[in-house]
């Protein structure tokens, strides 16, 4: 955006030296800014964007002015070869410096773009964690969803740590690197994948929710999972797990379902969206608790057993042939005897 704005501005500036034209072009940029911010649903985000746009505008003006200066320099440089050479070198140095500066500026700008989503207080995070367990029965009016990524990200990292712990204590014997990768992949995959999937569904059925809100909603929904898994990985007691699964997992799922219900219109879309989300969310908890390490163990067993199986079979095959013959003979005899008994 920065570079394109700069190149757009240089053309009218190179052509005219008129103040009126300058004022006109900057007014156009202001209009664009207003368009951009009016689409945003968060006021502070809009303000940040506007401020950044304005900073970019200032830097673009400066860059354009310098470009102009370079052109003039070349024109003046026609008078003497020495002067032209010097100006060319200066121009190249300036271009390289500008490239570096714009790169550094882009890095800072990228951090600044993400910063509004991390703009929270500890008390806000605490209350949002609590609210993620409390379903609100207000369906007629769209419920508020805070678009924030600090809490969800930290919850996903916490879930990764808990999963690692669970895998280790459940006696999963597998290469640790795979454990780590699997845990991270599962947690981030679930968070990002299900969020995008539900967002896609919501887009299809015309529900009023943004991707950011979906990420935040599902991320905070993982708080229940963290609590349940932390307790049940340490206390191995199936009834306790089922109770917690229904109560805590159910509450956090209900909360998300209630939010989605309030933002969707129509019976079928509601059923589709909420049913899908509830199914995925509840079954993910079951999956993490039960089949996760069992599947890994099974995979490992099959890998381990692979090099043992042929040896065993070779050993077993030789007596089996003779054994089979005798067994067949025996079973035939038995069958005949049984037949005779039943006949008599």
């Amino acid at each position: 955006g920065n570079m394109s704005a700069g190149s757009r501005n240089t053309e009218p500036w190179g052509g005219f030296d008129d103040n009126l034209i300058q004022g006109g072009s900057s007014a156009v940029i202001d209009m664009e800014n207003m368009d951009d911010t009016s689409g945003s649903s968060f006021e502070d985000v809009g303000e940040m964007h506007q401020r950044m746009k304005e900073e970019e505008e200032v830097s673009a003006e400066a860059a354009a002015a310098e470009d102009d200066g370079a052109d003039d320099g070349e024109f003046l440089g026609m008078k003497g070869l020495k002067g032209q050479l010097g100006r060319q070198v200066a121009d190249e140095v300036w271009q390289a410096g500008k490239r570096q500066a714009s790169k550094a500026f882009n890095l800072y700008a990228n951090i600044d773009i993400l910063r509004p989503y991390f703009d929270v207080e500890p008390s806000q995070v605490r209350s949002r964690l609590m609210e993620s367990m409390i379903p609100v029965r207000m369906i007629s009016f769209p419920q508020k969803v805070a678009g924030e990524l600090y809490g969800p990200l930290m919850l996903v990292f916490t879930l990764v740590a808990i999963l690692l712990h669970g895998m280790k204590t459940s006696g999963t014997v597998i290469r640790e690197g795979t454990l780590m990768g699997t845990a991270i992949g599962t947690c981030f995959g679930y968070w990002l994948g299900v969020s995008s999937f539900i967002y896609f569904l919501a887009y299809l059925v015309n529900a009023q929710i943004t991707m950011l809100q979906m990420l935040s909603l599902l991320g905070y929904g993982l708080f229940g999972h963290c609590v349940v898994l932390l307790v049940t990985y340490n206390i191995h007691f199936h009834l306790l797990f089922y109770a917690m699964w229904l109560l805590i997992g159910g509450l956090s799922t209900l909360r998300m379902v209630a939010v989605l219900l309030s933002r969707t219109v129509g019976q079928t879309p509601r059923l589709l969206l909420c049913g899908m989300l509830a199914l995925l969310h509840m079954s993910f908890l079951l999956y993490l608790h039960f089949s996760y390490h069992q599947i890994l163990e099974g995979l490992l067993d099959s890998l381990e057993g692979h090099n043992m199986a042929p040896i065993q079979r070779v050993v077993r095959d030789v007596p089996e042939v003779t054994l089979n013959a005798t067994v067949c003979g025996l079973s035939n005899m038995e069958y005949a005897q049984l037949h005779a008994i039943s006949a008599s």
Partner: peptide, 10 residues
């Protein structure tokens, strides 16, 4: 210097 000259009109 040329840059300064150029930026003077602005």
């Amino acid at each position: 210097t040329s840059a300064e000259e150029a930026s003077r009109p602005f």
